[in-house]
């Protein structure tokens, strides 16, 4: 989460042990995950058209085609939901990495400022 009480930390430069600021926007990743969940919801809710009061071998074939199409939509929805979950996880990890990097950078900046102040006093 954002630390609104602290001064903003520049993402430029590197932090020893952590390297440069982790690239990417967790919110953009979550937006893509939400888009995938919306598509999955539509596909999972795809209704199978009812062809009522029709019985013949061809009617059986037609119902089979409709069931197959709805089945493809359902299986696709499952796979897409899996991707959305993976993206959510990636967004959470990226957000945590960025938060750790900012925290480390702030401590590093504060340590530098303190060292500079003590040097000037002497």
């Amino acid at each position: 989460m954002w630390d609104f009480g602290a001064a903003p930390v520049s993402t430029a430069g590197t932090v020893p042990g952590l390297g440069s600021f982790p690239d990417g926007d967790p919110e953009a990743i979550r937006a893509v995950a939400d888009q995938l969940r919306r598509i999955a919801g539509l596909l999972a809710g795809a209704p199978k058209p009812a062809v009522a009061s029709w019985s013949s071998p061809e009617a059986t074939r037609v119902r089979g085609r409709l069931s197959a199409a709805v089945g493809v939509a359902g299986r696709g929805a499952d796979e897409i939901r899996g991707c959305a979950a993976a993206l959510d996880h990636a967004a959470d990890e990226l957000a945590a990495d960025q938060r750790d990097w900012r925290l480390a950078k702030r401590r590093l900046d504060e340590a530098r400022r303190l060292a500079e102040t003590q040097g000037a006093d002497r």
């Binding site: 982790p22 690239d23 990417g24 926007d25 967790p26 953009a28 990743i29 893509v32 888009q35 995938l36 993206l87 990636a90 967004a91 990226l94």
Partner: peptide, 9 residues
Amino acid sequence: GVSAPAGVP
């Protein structure tokens, strides 16, 4: 039109 944004492993 879906692609993973930057920052995704």
